[in-house]
Design a protein around this nucleic acid. Structure first.
Lengths: 194, 194
DNA sequence: GGTCACAAACCGACCAGACGGTACGGAGGC
DNA sequence: GCCTCCGTACCGTCTGGTCGGTTTGTGACC
Protein backbone atom coordinates (compact mmCIF):
# COMPACT_ATOMS: atom_id res chain seq x y z
CA UNK A 1 0.00 0.00 0.00
CA UNK A 2 1.68 3.12 -1.23
CA UNK A 3 -1.41 5.22 -0.51
CA UNK A 4 -0.92 5.19 3.25
CA UNK A 5 2.71 6.11 2.86
CA UNK A 6 1.90 9.43 1.25
CA UNK A 7 -0.81 10.33 3.72
CA UNK A 8 1.29 9.23 6.67
CA UNK A 9 4.31 11.12 5.49
CA UNK A 10 2.26 14.27 5.05
CA UNK A 11 0.81 13.95 8.54
CA UNK A 12 4.22 13.34 10.02
CA UNK A 13 5.67 16.44 8.36
CA UNK A 14 2.63 18.52 9.26
CA UNK A 15 2.85 17.53 12.91
CA UNK A 16 6.52 18.36 13.06
CA UNK A 17 6.08 21.76 11.44
CA UNK A 18 2.93 22.68 13.37
CA UNK A 19 4.66 21.86 16.63
CA UNK A 20 7.79 23.79 15.71
CA UNK A 21 6.33 26.97 14.24
CA UNK A 22 2.58 26.85 14.70
CA UNK A 23 -0.30 26.04 12.41
CA UNK A 24 -0.79 29.54 11.02
CA UNK A 25 2.91 30.01 10.29
CA UNK A 26 3.14 26.81 8.31
CA UNK A 27 2.17 26.82 4.64
CA UNK A 28 1.04 23.74 2.79
CA UNK A 29 4.00 24.30 0.50
CA UNK A 30 6.32 23.75 3.43
CA UNK A 31 4.45 20.64 4.46
CA UNK A 32 4.47 18.93 1.10
CA UNK A 33 8.11 19.83 0.59
CA UNK A 34 9.07 18.39 3.97
CA UNK A 35 7.01 15.29 3.23
CA UNK A 36 8.61 14.87 -0.19
CA UNK A 37 5.33 14.93 -2.08
CA UNK A 38 3.48 17.46 -4.22
CA UNK A 39 0.48 19.58 -3.48
CA UNK A 40 -1.66 17.58 -5.84
CA UNK A 41 -0.86 14.38 -3.98
CA UNK A 42 -1.67 15.97 -0.66
CA UNK A 43 -4.99 17.38 -1.76
CA UNK A 44 -5.84 13.94 -3.10
CA UNK A 45 -5.86 12.58 0.46
CA UNK A 46 -6.90 15.65 2.44
CA UNK A 47 -9.61 18.15 1.63
CA UNK A 48 -7.95 21.15 3.24
CA UNK A 49 -5.12 22.33 5.47
CA UNK A 50 -7.57 22.31 8.32
CA UNK A 51 -8.17 18.64 7.56
CA UNK A 52 -4.54 17.88 8.40
CA UNK A 53 -4.91 19.47 11.79
CA UNK A 54 -8.08 17.55 12.46
CA UNK A 55 -6.47 14.26 11.48
CA UNK A 56 -3.78 14.85 14.09
CA UNK A 57 -6.43 15.59 16.67
CA UNK A 58 -8.39 12.53 15.69
CA UNK A 59 -5.42 10.26 16.29
CA UNK A 60 -4.73 11.83 19.67
CA UNK A 61 -8.32 11.66 20.84
CA UNK A 62 -8.72 8.03 19.83
CA UNK A 63 -5.53 7.07 21.60
CA UNK A 64 -6.46 8.81 24.84
CA UNK A 65 -9.96 7.37 24.94
CA UNK A 66 -8.67 3.90 24.13
CA UNK A 67 -6.16 4.02 26.99
CA UNK A 68 -8.76 5.29 29.45
CA UNK A 69 -11.26 2.59 28.56
CA UNK A 70 -8.65 -0.15 28.81
CA UNK A 71 -7.54 0.95 32.26
CA UNK A 72 -11.08 1.28 33.58
CA UNK A 73 -11.88 -2.17 32.19
CA UNK A 74 -9.15 -3.66 34.34
CA UNK A 75 -11.19 -2.78 37.41
CA UNK A 76 -10.10 -1.94 40.94
CA UNK A 77 -11.00 0.64 43.53
CA UNK A 78 -11.54 4.20 42.34
CA UNK A 79 -8.24 5.22 43.89
CA UNK A 80 -6.34 2.43 42.15
CA UNK A 81 -7.92 3.26 38.79
CA UNK A 82 -7.29 6.97 39.26
CA UNK A 83 -3.64 6.29 39.96
CA UNK A 84 -3.28 4.10 36.89
CA UNK A 85 -5.09 6.60 34.67
CA UNK A 86 -3.04 9.49 35.94
CA UNK A 87 0.30 7.79 35.47
CA UNK A 88 -0.63 6.53 32.05
CA UNK A 89 -1.85 9.85 30.75
CA UNK A 90 1.33 11.59 31.84
CA UNK A 91 3.57 8.99 30.22
CA UNK A 92 1.47 8.99 27.08
CA UNK A 93 1.41 12.75 26.89
CA UNK A 94 5.18 12.88 27.13
CA UNK A 95 5.49 10.20 24.50
CA UNK A 96 3.27 12.27 22.21
CA UNK A 97 4.60 15.66 23.21
CA UNK A 98 4.48 17.26 19.73
CA UNK A 99 0.88 16.13 19.32
CA UNK A 100 0.06 17.70 22.66
CA UNK A 101 1.74 20.95 21.75
CA UNK A 102 -0.29 21.23 18.57
CA UNK A 103 -3.43 19.97 20.21
CA UNK A 104 -3.58 22.56 22.94
CA UNK A 105 -2.25 25.43 20.90
CA UNK A 106 -4.20 25.27 17.67
CA UNK A 107 -7.65 24.09 18.58
CA UNK A 108 -9.12 27.48 17.76
CA UNK A 109 -7.79 27.25 14.23
CA UNK A 110 -10.20 24.47 13.33
CA UNK A 111 -13.53 25.23 11.71
CA UNK A 112 -16.35 25.82 14.17
CA UNK A 113 -17.90 22.48 13.35
CA UNK A 114 -14.73 20.55 14.00
CA UNK A 115 -14.08 22.44 17.19
CA UNK A 116 -17.44 21.20 18.36
CA UNK A 117 -16.50 17.65 17.41
CA UNK A 118 -13.25 17.89 19.38
CA UNK A 119 -15.10 19.32 22.35
CA UNK A 120 -17.61 16.49 22.22
CA UNK A 121 -14.88 13.87 22.20
CA UNK A 122 -13.02 15.49 25.06
CA UNK A 123 -16.27 15.71 26.97
CA UNK A 124 -16.58 11.95 26.76
CA UNK A 125 -13.18 11.65 28.40
CA UNK A 126 -14.11 14.21 31.03
CA UNK A 127 -17.28 12.38 31.91
CA UNK A 128 -15.59 9.04 32.36
CA UNK A 129 -13.03 10.70 34.59
CA UNK A 130 -15.74 12.47 36.56
CA UNK A 131 -17.45 9.13 37.19
CA UNK A 132 -14.23 7.85 38.71
CA UNK A 133 -14.02 10.81 41.07
CA UNK A 134 -17.64 10.45 42.12
CA UNK A 135 -17.08 6.76 42.75
CA UNK A 136 -14.03 7.69 44.78
CA UNK A 137 -16.17 10.02 46.86
CA UNK A 138 -18.70 7.25 47.44
CA UNK A 139 -15.91 4.89 48.47
CA UNK A 140 -14.61 7.53 50.85
CA UNK A 141 -11.18 7.96 49.26
CA UNK A 142 -11.83 11.28 47.46
CA UNK A 143 -12.65 14.51 49.23
CA UNK A 144 -16.12 15.99 48.65
CA UNK A 145 -15.56 19.50 49.98
CA UNK A 146 -14.41 20.74 46.57
CA UNK A 147 -16.58 20.50 43.42
CA UNK A 148 -15.71 17.64 41.10
CA UNK A 149 -15.41 20.10 38.21
CA UNK A 150 -12.55 21.83 40.00
CA UNK A 151 -10.82 18.54 40.73
CA UNK A 152 -11.07 17.62 37.05
CA UNK A 153 -9.62 20.95 35.97
CA UNK A 154 -6.83 20.47 38.48
CA UNK A 155 -6.01 17.13 36.89
CA UNK A 156 -6.17 18.18 33.26
CA UNK A 157 -4.11 21.26 33.93
CA UNK A 158 -1.04 19.14 34.67
CA UNK A 159 -1.51 17.10 31.53
CA UNK A 160 -2.07 20.18 29.47
CA UNK A 161 0.94 21.99 30.82
CA UNK A 162 3.43 19.20 30.12
CA UNK A 163 4.14 20.43 26.62
CA UNK A 164 5.09 23.80 28.09
CA UNK A 165 7.83 22.68 30.41
CA UNK A 166 8.82 19.06 29.99
CA UNK A 167 11.99 18.43 28.05
CA UNK A 168 13.33 14.98 27.21
CA UNK A 169 16.79 16.39 27.86
CA UNK A 170 15.80 17.38 31.38
CA UNK A 171 16.85 15.50 34.53
CA UNK A 172 13.62 13.54 35.00
CA UNK A 173 12.47 10.80 32.69
CA UNK A 174 8.82 10.30 31.85
CA UNK A 175 8.17 7.58 34.42
CA UNK A 176 9.59 9.65 37.24
CA UNK A 177 7.54 12.67 36.28
CA UNK A 178 4.44 10.51 35.98
CA UNK A 179 4.97 9.20 39.50
CA UNK A 180 5.63 12.65 40.90
CA UNK A 181 2.66 14.38 39.28
CA UNK A 182 0.39 11.48 40.20
CA UNK A 183 1.55 11.66 43.79
CA UNK A 184 0.87 15.40 43.88
CA UNK A 185 -2.57 15.05 42.35
CA UNK A 186 -3.71 12.09 44.44
CA UNK A 187 -2.48 13.70 47.63
CA UNK A 188 -4.43 16.85 46.90
CA UNK A 189 -7.72 15.11 46.21
CA UNK A 190 -7.50 12.49 48.95
CA UNK A 191 -10.08 12.68 51.68
CA UNK A 192 -8.67 13.34 55.12
CA UNK A 193 -10.55 13.31 58.38
CA UNK A 194 -9.70 16.68 59.83
CA UNK B 1 -4.65 63.34 25.93
CA UNK B 2 -6.22 62.00 22.79
CA UNK B 3 -3.11 60.03 21.90
CA UNK B 4 -3.62 57.46 24.64
CA UNK B 5 -7.26 57.06 23.70
CA UNK B 6 -6.44 55.84 20.22
CA UNK B 7 -3.72 53.47 21.37
CA UNK B 8 -5.82 52.18 24.24
CA UNK B 9 -8.84 51.64 22.08
CA UNK B 10 -6.78 49.70 19.57
CA UNK B 11 -5.31 47.51 22.28
CA UNK B 12 -8.73 46.90 23.78
CA UNK B 13 -10.18 45.85 20.42
CA UNK B 14 -7.14 43.75 19.60
CA UNK B 15 -7.33 41.90 22.90
CA UNK B 16 -11.01 41.17 22.44
CA UNK B 17 -10.56 39.88 18.91
CA UNK B 18 -7.41 37.89 19.62
CA UNK B 19 -9.12 36.19 22.54
CA UNK B 20 -12.24 35.43 20.55
CA UNK B 21 -10.81 34.21 17.27
CA UNK B 22 -7.05 33.96 17.67
CA UNK B 23 -4.18 36.15 16.58
CA UNK B 24 -3.71 34.63 13.14
CA UNK B 25 -7.40 34.78 12.31
CA UNK B 26 -7.65 38.45 13.13
CA UNK B 27 -6.71 40.99 10.47
CA UNK B 28 -5.50 44.49 11.12
CA UNK B 29 -8.55 45.73 9.26
CA UNK B 30 -10.84 44.05 11.77
CA UNK B 31 -8.97 45.56 14.67
CA UNK B 32 -9.00 49.14 13.48
CA UNK B 33 -12.64 48.84 12.48
CA UNK B 34 -13.58 47.50 15.91
CA UNK B 35 -11.54 50.24 17.55
CA UNK B 36 -13.17 52.93 15.42
CA UNK B 37 -9.89 54.21 14.01
CA UNK B 38 -8.02 53.92 10.73
CA UNK B 39 -5.00 51.91 9.77
CA UNK B 40 -2.88 55.02 9.49
CA UNK B 41 -3.69 55.97 13.06
CA UNK B 42 -2.86 52.52 14.31
CA UNK B 43 0.44 52.29 12.52
CA UNK B 44 1.31 55.66 13.97
CA UNK B 45 1.33 54.14 17.46
CA UNK B 46 2.37 50.58 16.71
CA UNK B 47 5.07 49.38 14.38
CA UNK B 48 3.41 46.10 13.43
CA UNK B 49 0.61 43.70 14.19
CA UNK B 50 3.08 41.72 16.26
CA UNK B 51 3.65 44.87 18.28
CA UNK B 52 0.03 44.81 19.41
CA UNK B 53 0.42 41.31 20.73
CA UNK B 54 3.58 42.20 22.55
CA UNK B 55 1.96 45.23 24.15
CA UNK B 56 -0.72 42.95 25.59
CA UNK B 57 1.98 40.62 26.92
CA UNK B 58 3.90 43.51 28.36
CA UNK B 59 0.92 44.67 30.40
CA UNK B 60 0.25 41.18 31.69
CA UNK B 61 3.86 40.50 32.63
CA UNK B 62 4.23 43.78 34.48
CA UNK B 63 1.04 43.20 36.40
CA UNK B 64 1.99 39.69 37.48
CA UNK B 65 5.47 40.66 38.58
CA UNK B 66 4.18 43.68 40.45
CA UNK B 67 1.68 41.59 42.38
CA UNK B 68 4.28 38.97 43.24
CA UNK B 69 6.77 41.52 44.51
CA UNK B 70 4.15 43.28 46.60
CA UNK B 71 3.04 40.06 48.29
CA UNK B 72 6.59 38.91 49.00
CA UNK B 73 7.39 42.33 50.43
CA UNK B 74 4.65 41.88 53.02
CA UNK B 75 6.70 39.11 54.60
CA UNK B 76 5.62 36.03 56.52
CA UNK B 77 6.52 32.37 56.54
CA UNK B 78 7.06 30.69 53.21
CA UNK B 79 3.77 28.86 53.58
CA UNK B 80 1.86 32.07 54.29
CA UNK B 81 3.43 33.85 51.34
CA UNK B 82 2.81 30.87 49.05
CA UNK B 83 -0.84 30.86 50.04
CA UNK B 84 -1.20 34.58 49.38
CA UNK B 85 0.60 34.37 46.05
CA UNK B 86 -1.45 31.41 44.92
CA UNK B 87 -4.79 32.95 45.78
CA UNK B 88 -3.86 36.27 44.25
CA UNK B 89 -2.65 34.82 41.00
CA UNK B 90 -5.83 32.82 40.54
CA UNK B 91 -8.06 35.79 41.23
CA UNK B 92 -5.96 38.02 38.99
CA UNK B 93 -5.91 35.46 36.20
CA UNK B 94 -9.67 35.19 36.28
CA UNK B 95 -9.98 38.96 36.31
CA UNK B 96 -7.77 39.10 33.23
CA UNK B 97 -9.09 35.99 31.55
CA UNK B 98 -8.97 37.30 27.96
CA UNK B 99 -5.38 38.40 28.47
CA UNK B 100 -4.55 34.95 29.75
CA UNK B 101 -6.20 33.26 26.82
CA UNK B 102 -4.17 35.30 24.37
CA UNK B 103 -1.05 35.05 26.46
CA UNK B 104 -0.88 31.29 26.57
CA UNK B 105 -2.20 30.65 23.10
CA UNK B 106 -0.27 33.04 20.90
CA UNK B 107 3.20 33.23 22.35
CA UNK B 108 4.65 31.39 19.37
CA UNK B 109 3.30 34.04 17.02
CA UNK B 110 5.71 36.65 18.36
CA UNK B 111 9.02 37.25 16.65
CA UNK B 112 11.85 35.11 17.99
CA UNK B 113 13.42 38.08 19.75
CA UNK B 114 10.22 38.97 21.56
CA UNK B 115 9.59 35.38 22.51
CA UNK B 116 12.95 35.45 24.20
CA UNK B 117 12.01 38.64 26.03
CA UNK B 118 8.78 37.08 27.26
CA UNK B 119 10.64 33.97 28.36
CA UNK B 120 13.14 36.08 30.24
CA UNK B 121 10.42 37.96 32.09
CA UNK B 122 8.55 34.79 32.98
CA UNK B 123 11.80 33.29 34.18
CA UNK B 124 12.09 36.12 36.67
CA UNK B 125 8.70 35.19 38.04
CA UNK B 126 9.63 31.51 38.11
CA UNK B 127 12.80 32.19 40.03
CA UNK B 128 11.11 34.25 42.70
CA UNK B 129 8.55 31.51 43.11
CA UNK B 130 11.27 28.86 43.28
CA UNK B 131 12.96 30.79 46.07
CA UNK B 132 9.74 30.62 48.05
CA UNK B 133 9.54 26.88 47.64
CA UNK B 134 13.17 26.39 48.64
CA UNK B 135 12.61 28.56 51.69
CA UNK B 136 9.56 26.47 52.49
CA UNK B 137 11.69 23.35 52.31
CA UNK B 138 14.22 24.92 54.66
CA UNK B 139 11.43 25.86 57.06
CA UNK B 140 10.13 22.32 56.90
CA UNK B 141 6.70 23.11 55.47
CA UNK B 142 7.36 22.04 51.85
CA UNK B 143 8.20 18.49 50.84
CA UNK B 144 11.65 17.87 49.39
CA UNK B 145 11.10 14.43 47.88
CA UNK B 146 9.95 15.94 44.58
CA UNK B 147 12.10 18.33 42.52
CA UNK B 148 11.23 21.99 42.86
CA UNK B 149 10.93 22.27 39.09
CA UNK B 150 8.07 19.77 39.15
CA UNK B 151 6.35 21.62 41.98
CA UNK B 152 6.60 24.84 40.01
CA UNK B 153 5.14 23.23 36.91
CA UNK B 154 2.35 21.82 39.03
CA UNK B 155 1.55 25.32 40.25
CA UNK B 156 1.70 27.12 36.92
CA UNK B 157 -0.37 24.46 35.25
CA UNK B 158 -3.42 25.45 37.27
CA UNK B 159 -2.96 29.11 36.47
CA UNK B 160 -2.40 28.38 32.83
CA UNK B 161 -5.42 26.14 32.53
CA UNK B 162 -7.91 28.61 33.99
CA UNK B 163 -8.61 30.20 30.62
CA UNK B 164 -9.55 26.77 29.30
CA UNK B 165 -12.29 25.92 31.74
CA UNK B 166 -13.30 28.80 33.98
CA UNK B 167 -16.47 30.59 33.03
CA UNK B 168 -17.82 33.64 34.87
CA UNK B 169 -21.28 32.17 34.33
CA UNK B 170 -20.27 28.99 36.14
CA UNK B 171 -21.33 28.11 39.69
CA UNK B 172 -18.12 29.18 41.43
CA UNK B 173 -16.96 32.75 41.71
CA UNK B 174 -13.31 33.71 41.46
CA UNK B 175 -12.65 33.83 45.19
CA UNK B 176 -14.07 30.37 45.75
CA UNK B 177 -12.02 28.90 42.94
CA UNK B 178 -8.93 30.66 44.25
CA UNK B 179 -9.44 29.10 47.67
CA UNK B 180 -10.09 25.68 46.24
CA UNK B 181 -7.14 25.59 43.88
CA UNK B 182 -4.87 27.00 46.56
CA UNK B 183 -6.03 24.35 49.00
CA UNK B 184 -5.34 21.62 46.44
CA UNK B 185 -1.90 22.95 45.59
CA UNK B 186 -0.76 23.58 49.16
CA UNK B 187 -2.00 20.20 50.30
CA UNK B 188 -0.05 18.47 47.55
CA UNK B 189 3.27 20.18 48.30
CA UNK B 190 3.04 20.12 52.07
CA UNK B 191 5.63 18.07 53.88
CA UNK B 192 4.23 15.16 55.86
CA UNK B 193 6.13 12.87 58.19
CA UNK B 194 5.16 9.48 56.86
C1' DG C 1 0.38 -12.90 -22.16
C1' DG C 2 -0.86 -9.20 -24.83
C1' DT C 3 -4.08 -5.52 -25.20
C1' DC C 4 -7.34 -2.38 -23.88
C1' DA C 5 -10.38 0.31 -20.91
C1' DC C 6 -10.93 2.64 -16.88
C1' DA C 7 -10.13 4.47 -12.48
C1' DA C 8 -7.19 5.93 -8.92
C1' DA C 9 -3.01 8.39 -7.91
C1' DC C 10 -0.43 12.15 -8.80
C1' DC C 11 1.70 16.47 -10.94
C1' DG C 12 2.59 21.47 -10.95
C1' DA C 13 1.40 25.73 -13.12
C1' DC C 14 -1.88 28.85 -12.02
C1' DC C 15 -5.44 31.88 -9.66
C1' DA C 16 -8.26 34.96 -6.86
C1' DG C 17 -8.05 37.41 -3.07
C1' DA C 18 -6.63 38.63 1.46
C1' DC C 19 -3.15 40.39 4.13
C1' DG C 20 0.40 43.43 6.45
C1' DG C 21 2.48 47.33 5.58
C1' DT C 22 3.61 51.90 3.10
C1' DA C 23 3.42 56.42 0.68
C1' DC C 24 1.76 60.58 0.59
C1' DG C 25 -0.92 64.24 1.68
C1' DG C 26 -3.76 67.15 4.68
C1' DA C 27 -5.08 69.23 9.16
C1' DG C 28 -4.02 71.61 13.02
C1' DG C 29 -1.44 73.09 16.80
C1' DC C 30 2.91 75.64 18.34
C1' DG D 1 7.42 76.44 8.69
C1' DC D 2 7.73 72.38 11.11
C1' DC D 3 6.18 68.51 13.64
C1' DT D 4 2.73 65.29 15.39
C1' DC D 5 -1.36 63.02 14.23
C1' DC D 6 -4.09 60.71 11.23
C1' DG D 7 -6.92 59.47 6.53
C1' DT D 8 -6.80 56.95 2.15
C1' DA D 9 -5.43 54.70 -1.63
C1' DC D 10 -2.44 51.49 -2.98
C1' DC D 11 1.26 47.72 -3.39
C1' DG D 12 3.95 43.44 -3.33
C1' DT D 13 3.66 39.14 -1.47
C1' DC D 14 2.08 34.99 -0.07
C1' DT D 15 -1.46 31.56 0.59
C1' DG D 16 -4.90 27.90 0.24
C1' DG D 17 -6.90 25.76 -3.13
C1' DT D 18 -7.96 24.31 -8.17
C1' DC D 19 -7.82 22.19 -12.58
C1' DG D 20 -6.52 20.05 -16.82
C1' DG D 21 -3.61 16.70 -17.87
C1' DT D 22 -0.34 12.60 -17.24
C1' DT D 23 1.21 8.47 -15.16
C1' DT D 24 0.46 4.18 -12.84
C1' DG D 25 -2.09 0.25 -11.33
C1' DT D 26 -5.78 -3.24 -12.22
C1' DG D 27 -8.56 -6.47 -14.04
C1' DA D 28 -11.12 -8.39 -17.94
C1' DC D 29 -11.26 -10.38 -22.20
C1' DC D 30 -9.46 -12.74 -26.11
Amino acid sequence: MKTTNVADEVLRAALELFAAQGYANTSVQQIVKAAGVTKGAMYHYFTSKDDLLFAIYERMLSLQKQHLDAIIAEGGTAEEVLRAVCEDVVVTSIEFLPEGTVFFRSQHMLTAERQREVKRRRREYHDRFAELLVRGQAEGSVRDDIPVSVLIAHFFSDVHYLSHWYSPEGPENETEVAHQLTELFLRSIRRTDD
